[in-house]
């Protein structure tokens, strides 16, 4: 048992954004999308999203402001919103991040890394338990791309995530581009991390592009997916344990949207590298 048994076969997907709603709606084989949970107005959900739900696509609410890795308890109203999104959209699961976004009432404005320490594992474990108690569906958590580490890390990333999964049984949302970005910015081999993760708990994966700036690779989601990330999709797919429902692979794009043909080509490249059916 690893918690992935009840999930549908997701296949290749793309993150739903208002700017590309028409493109997403017109993908003939699409059965999987994701929406930023905080952008969903429960009383006025976008028609395009409801149409995807009604034609049987899996629509996964993806939270970005819950702060599961914060030392403070997660806000009940934020958990309730995630749960309500899952109910509204008929979602098979919801996802959030292994990160914190605020502390002491100050908003960071983005996802920040937690120290890889026992205290952070305690905080994450407690907040994942609080969140799952209110959710109607499973939760997957995504390790983030971080430009810096805490000075007092007690664990390597793979061991930290393995310990988190062992403590909680939580599913993983593995962002291949984050694995690539973290390894590249630290001069490490991204495949090495894949070999240390509990891949049987991966519910689905993210794929995205980023940009070099100031000597660092930034996971911006506003650029084409680099070939190295597509290669890593293939490396990961070759390592995934055999199971009846393989994890989905979802393309994230958050700005500077390219022509539809380019997005279709990226979706096809992800399908080819992961061995999943094309959706275009």
């Amino acid at each position: 048992m690893n918690g992935t048994e009840g999930l549908p076969r997701l296949g290749v997907g793309i993150g739903w954004r208002p700017e590309i709603a028409g493109f997403v709606a017109d993908l003939p084989g699409l059965r999987f999308t994701e929406v930023i949970a905080e952008s969903v107005h429960l009383a006025h959900p976008p028609d395009h999203l409801l149409e995807l739900r009604d034609r049987g696509a899996s629509v996964v609410p993806h939270g970005v402001k819950l702060s599961l890795g914060g030392a403070e308890p997660v806000a009940p109203e934020r958990v309730a919103h995630l749960a309500a999104c899952a109910e509204l959209l008929g979602s098979p699961l919801v996802s959030e991040h292994v990160a914190f976004v605020r502390a002491g009432g100050v908003e960071a404005g983005h996802l920040l890394p937690v120290p890889r320490s026992r205290a952070a594992l305690d905080a994450l474990t407690a907040n994942i338990r609080r969140t799952r108690a209110e959710l109607p569906v499973p939760l997957a958590v995504e390790p983030i791309a971080a430009l810096f580490d805490w000075p007092d890390d007690e664990y390597e990333e793979g061991d930290f995530l393995t310990e988190l999964v062992e403590r909680t049984g939580v599913l993983l949302l593995l962002d291949v581009a984050n694995v690539y970005a973290n390894a590249r910015n630290r001069g490490r081999d991204p495949v090495g991390l894949l070999d240390r993760l509990p891949l049987d708990h991966v519910a689905y994966c993210h794929v995205a592009g980023g940009e070099e700036g100031g000597g660092r690779y930034h996971d911006t989601h506003t650029a084409p997916v680099p070939p190295e990330v597509i290669d890593l999709v293939a490396e990961l797919s070759a390592r995934l344990p055999d199971r009846t429902r393989p994890p989905g692979f979802l393309l994230e794009r958050d700005g500077r949207y390219p022509p539809a043909a380019e997005l279709r080509a990226e979706l096809d490249a992800i399908a080819a590298a992961s061995g999943l059916e094309p959706v275009t």
């Binding site: 914060g70 914190f100 502390a103 002491g104 100050v106 960071a108 937690v114 026992r118 905080a123 474990t125």
Partner: peptide, 20 residues
């Protein structure tokens, strides 16, 4: 286990210092 409450308090303070 609920973990070490002292560890969580220290984590809270350190996270706040970093965000600030």
């Amino acid at each position: 286990s609920a973990g070490d409450p002292g560890g969580l308090e220290e984590l809270a303070a350190r996270q706040e210092a970093l965000v600030r």
